[in-house]
Each structure stands twice: as structure tokens, then as C-alpha cells.
């Protein structure tokens, strides 16, 4: 079948409607280009002359970041807690989502609602006593603390997404497996998880995404040892004499992991959104 757009008269309407996404993407890319542009300039050029592309092209800003341990540690810290959070969220959410998709149990609807409220509530509401809470259990300034705190909004999300995917798998699959003599853990890992692997991919994508972009909680729970890259970035902004080139370079580098993740899950994105459970 040939390529059919959403328009009914492909020939005439196509030229116009084909432009819309291009214009939109250009709109998305201009600020990003400007950040990239700034990151390759020296501070004299940024503040002095207004140039559309770097006249004195320099890698210095990036070199500073790669050589200074604070920045490098920031990256490693961020990636560590994001990965930890994604793993915890998935491992804990999988059985829970199965329970929600297969069984009715005491207070299930209300439990689900309560979980969702935590996804929706602003972190600012909870963050007030977070420092004391995590200090009292001796977890302050550790990666695991941020990972656990981020489950506050990522777990409900993961349960929600996975429940949607699991509901699409007919119950007969479970029943046949039990008749064939599979135990529950064996059935779950061997048969069920491969069936919903796109769902797991999507859930992992969103856990990664929301943990990666969050700043308030991560900043509250860390001091030095586990300080995320985005917090390192804000500390620089408050310093006297803002180093715009450095900030721009750091900003560009924080975009890279996200871009990589999108590239890897590009085929799942539309599918995942199709469930509408973000």
C-alpha cells in the first residue's frame, strides 16, 4: 500500500500540511541551536559581539567540564540514581501492575487513585521534610536516597503504563501456562514478560525521563557525594560573573543522554503513547 496521509486529498493538501511539522521542528531546534552556538563561543564573544555562529570556535568550555571532577561526578551521580530508580521502579511495579490488571481486591480502585495522586502532586508539597526524613534513616546524600524518592512519582507511572499493556494480554495466556504446570514466577519471567516487553520498554523510558529531568528532590537530598549534574549547573548560575559558555556546554551535555535514550526507543514511542498512560 502506498503512503497515505491523514488528509483526504493527498495531492493538493500534502504540500501545505507537510510543511507544518517542519516549521514546528525548526521552532524546537532554534533555541537548541542557540545553546549549542553559545557553548562553542568564548565568553568575550558571547557578551561582546552578537554572532549567529561562533567566530572564534572553541572547545574550551567542554574541556573544562571534562577535566573538572565536579562536573564529571555530577554526570556519574545523575546517571547512577536514574538507572537505580528505573530498575527499582520496574522490578517493584511489574507484580503490582499484574495484580491490578488481573484481580479485584480489597480497595484496589482507591489504592490506584492514591498512587496516582502521588504522580500528580507537586514535589514541593512533599519536599519540606524530605531532608529530615532521609537524614533520620541515614540515607542523605546517597544515590539510593534519590532513587527511592523518585519512585514517589515514577512507581505510580510505571504501574499505570504496565497495567495498560498487561490488560491487553488475554487471561487465557495465564491459564494455559498454569495448566501446563508453570509456577507463577516461572510463568511471569518466561512467558509473560516477553509478551509485554514493549510495555516494559516504554515504562523504562518514562521512568528514566522523569527521574532524569527532575531537580527539586534530587537537589534537596544531596549535598556533595551524590549531587546531580543539573544541581551543579544551578550552583554555577548563582556565582558572580556568570560563565555562560560553560553553562551552555553543560546544558548541551545534559541533553545527550536523553537524546540517546530517545534514539533507542524511537520505535516504541508512538506505541507507548498510544496507551495514553503517561
Amino acid at each position: 500500500m502506498s503512503q497515505i496521509g491523514f488528509s483526504l486529498k493527498p495531492k493538493r493538501a500534502f504540500a501545505w500540511s507537510g510543511l507544518v511539522p517542519v516549521v514546528y521542528i525548526i521552532f524546537l531546534m532554534i533555541p537548541l541551536y542557540w545553546l549549542l552556538n553559545t557553548s562553542f563561543k568564548t565568553n568575550q564573544e558571547i557578551l561582546g559581539a552578537f554572532t549567529l555562529w561562533p567566530k572564534n570556535f572553541t572547545w574550551d568550555n567542554y574541556l573544562t567540564i571534562f577535566t573538572e571532577p565536579v562536573w564529571r561526578a555530577g554526570y556519574i551521580n545523575s546517571i547512577t540514581y536514574v538507572v537505580l530508580n528505573t530498575l527499582i521502579s520496574l522490578v517493584v511495579a511489574l507484580p503490582a501492575a499484574y495484580a491490578f490488571s488481573r484481580y479485584n481486591f480489597l480497595g484496589d480502585k482507591h489504592l490506584f487513585f492514591w498512587l496516582l495522586t502521588n504522580r500528580m502532586a507537586p514535589s514541593a508539597v512533599f519536599v519540606l521534610p524530605f531532608f529530615q526524613l532521609y537524614s533520620s534513616v541515614g540515607l542523605i546524600d546517597t544515590h539510593i536516597a534519590v532513587a527511592i524518592a523518585h519512585t514517589l512519582f515514577n512507581l505510580p507511572l510505571a504501574v499505570w503504563i504496565l497495567e495498560g499493556f498487561m490488560s491487553g494480554i488475554p487471561r487465557e495466556v495465564d491459564e494455559t501456562a498454569y495448566i501446563d504446570g508453570y509456577s507463577f514466577p516461572k510463568f511471569f519471567v518466561r512467558i509473560f514478560m516477553p509478551l509485554i516487553k514493549s510495555g516494559i520498554g516504554v515504562a523504562a523510558f518514562f521512568c528514566f525521563m522523569f527521574s532524569w529531568v527532575e531537580l527539586l528532590i534530587a537537589r534537596t537530598l544531596t549535598i556533595t557525594e551524590a549531587k546531580p549534574i543539573s544541581a551543579v549547573l544551578t550552583r554555577t548560575v548563582t556565582g558572580e560573573g556568570v560563565d555562560w559558555g560553560l553553562i551552555a556546554a553543560a546544558g548541551i551535555l545534559t541533553i545527550v543522554p536523553g537524546a540517546l535514550v530517545i534514539y533507542f526507543v524511537r520505535n516504541y514511542i508512538a506505541k507507548g503513547f498510544a496507551l495514553g498512560r503517561v
Partner: peptide, 16 residues
Amino acid sequence: LMALPLLIPWNVVGTI
């Protein structure tokens, strides 16, 4: 390309 802004840390969005 469209999904890209969604994956940028929120404070970096502010910075951009």
C-alpha cells in the same frame, strides 16, 4: 526530534 525537548532536564529548559 519532537520528543527531544521532553528529555531535557527542567532546569536546563529554563537555562536554554
